[in-house]
Design a protein around this nucleic acid. Structure first.
Lengths: 190, 190
DNA sequence: TGTACATCAGTGAACGCGCGTTCACTGATGTAC
DNA sequence: TGTACATCAGTGAACGCGCGTTCACTGATGTAC
């Protein structure tokens, strides 16, 4: 009954989603065509609709997967507040700024996500809550709830700072913004 | 020699730029076609190239004009730190969140601007410097330079917070984010 | 004052192109016997 | 073991459409005399 290894199609689907994440973060959602996305995954455009109902459907799946990956990446950090310090320094690095395709989906796409349909915004909302909870838990392990306000502030500041640094054509001002961002981020830990 | 009132064409040009600013902030830059932009200004598509060399040229002019308008809006605030408190409350209001076309260009377009060409990013850079200087001057009138770090932090946090609130499909979480943003913003004034 | 003219902001149809999407088809696979 | 068959992931050409851009033209304007 099973013509191909049973996970084969699912593996392909995940490859499309993962490559599309990179492409979207690099060129924007509107800026990435279906043909390009499929050739990124080593396929031709026609196969797309065997995997997704529409481009919007792919976008919602990509956003969900990207935010899931962000939360998972927190596991590689040191525990507690020290991990947040790691996060701040990695997030606000020239390396991260200069490689949006491999970086944070919020920094690359947040305003575009705000203009997307319900499914995509719902996927983003679920992921954002998980990220805020993770940061809040590290700020005050004993009472994450009271730390949510600070967690939101730290996260939005980091996202805005990276976006700003990417938009500036003056390299030394862009670097200065990242450095100020690290100081401002560390202030949230005090 | 002068066939029309000499400011006529310039007035039309400014109308196109101003209406395009609203449209871009609402639908995104990639999401706004030249025909739509021109009909927003009460004209037809063909006249566009009598005013601008290309869509990119318009975008750069719109970004410059939008940021100039932002800086000018600071004049309507109370002087000094009190004005920053006004700014924080207005910026992080549901009213602002729900009307992107009339609001802050950074919140609506910052990640898209990061993917634009040099001319647009240069225009953005000039405007961003003016905004940061304005905030820094209000934070510490006697020594604006030392306050630039805080000014960058406050501005990026506000931009990120508004973007986040717009992207969330959960209304009560979106409202909570704005309220936390106000508290976090006021903390920058202390 | 009246008329012929030069100017030029704006019109609207058309260009080639890439978009998202559809579909008839291919060909490698595992199954049946 | 060998062959005919059913399955289905993927192919690639084509669809209508809106994109950014071009261009021959219009018609309201102020000028010249």
């Amino acid at each position: 009954m099973v013509r191909y290894a049973k996970e084969h199609k699912e593996v392909t689907r995940q490859r499309i989603i993962q490559k599309a994440g990179q492409r979207f973060k690099q060129d924007g959602i509107d800026g990435s065509g279906v043909s390009t996305l499929m050739s990124d995954a080593g396929l031709t455009n026609g196969a797309f609709y065997a995997h997704f109902a529409s481009k919007d459907d792919l976008v919602a799946n990509v956003v969900a997967a990207e935010l899931r990956a962000q939360v998972e990446a927190y596991d590689t950090l040191r525990p507690g507040r020290q991990g947040l310090e790691d996060l701040i320094r990695q997030y606000l690095s020239p390396e991260h700024r200069d490689h949006p395709g491999a970086g944070c989906p919020s920094a690359a796409l947040l305003d575009e996500i705000g203009r997307c349909g319900d499914a995509t915004r719902q996927a983003y909302t679920d992921g954002a809550k998980a990220i805020v909870d993770e940061i809040a838990a590290r700020l005050t392990p004993e009472d994450p709830r009271s730390a949510r306000g600070k967690a939101v502030g730290l996260y939005t500041m980091m996202v805005g700072t990276l976006q700003l640094s990417r938009a500036l054509s003056d390299r030394s001002f862009a670097d200065e913004v990242l450095e100020q961002g690290i100081e401002n981020g560390l202030a949230f830990l005090r």
